[in-house]
């Protein structure tokens, strides 16, 4: 009878596996860019050659003007940049119950020499005002913040508090 030779156990050396995995891990850690693109979203109006002008009643408009030194004028009143949110909020709120064609329009106008940063700061303030009104409205109606609502009620809030911002073309310097 032939005796079978006992073979040594066949194993793959796995001790270095962790090292290899570590190397790969470090590569991906370094190569990863986790920057979620964030910013202020806007929709531009369509480009039309001959623009019709539509008269808008004065109380529907909130005209913000920013000049080249960064001073802000809201409906003819000079205010500081950081007051925009507080000033706009009651005006947006007072128009929640009104139909869609009577809601507030915020018009943002700059000078050609205005710094982009000032424009973004003002736009940020306006958006902030709208978001706060939406949150408060959602809270009073559903008892939740706007972001926690489901889609249908979110749309309902959006319907009640639509963000209407008009970007006027900057004036040429005389």
């Amino acid at each position: 009878m032939i005796k079978k030779k006992k073979l040594p156990e066949a194993t793959i050396p796995t001790s270095s596996m962790a090292d290899i995995a570590f190397l790969l891990l470090i590569f991906f850690l370094v190569a990863t860019v986790i920057d979620v693109d964030s910013g202020i979203g806007m929709t531009l109006p369509e480009f039309i050659e001959d623009i019709e002008t539509v008269e808008v009643p004065k109380d529907r408009m909130a005209a913000i003007l920013i000049n080249e030194t960064g001073d802000v004028l809201l409906d003819g009143q000079p205010i500081s940049l950081f007051q925009i949110t507080a000033t706009l909020k009651p005006r947006i709120q007072s128009k929640i119950e009104l139909p869609k064609n009577k809601k507030l329009i915020v018009s943002l106008k700059t000078d050609r020499r205005t710094v982009y940063n000032a424009y973004i700061q003002a736009l940020d303030q306006v958006k902030e005002a709208y978001f706060e009104v939406r949150d408060e409205y959602a809270n009073s109606k559903y008892g939740q913040k706007f972001n926690d609502l489901d889609e249908t009620s979110q749309n309902e809030v959006k319907e009640a508090v639509p963000i209407i911002i008009s970007i006027a073309e900057p004036e040429k310097i005389k």
Partner: peptide, 24 residues
């Protein structure tokens, strides 16, 4: 300058790229 930004926006409007996002 805002004038420069607006010029770009005008070009985008002509190209019908209406959804924009000011990265911040």
């Amino acid at each position: 300058d805002m004038g420069y930004v607006t010029d770009i926006q005008q070009e985008l409007r002509k190209a019908y790229c209406l959804r924009i996002n000011y990265s911040a």
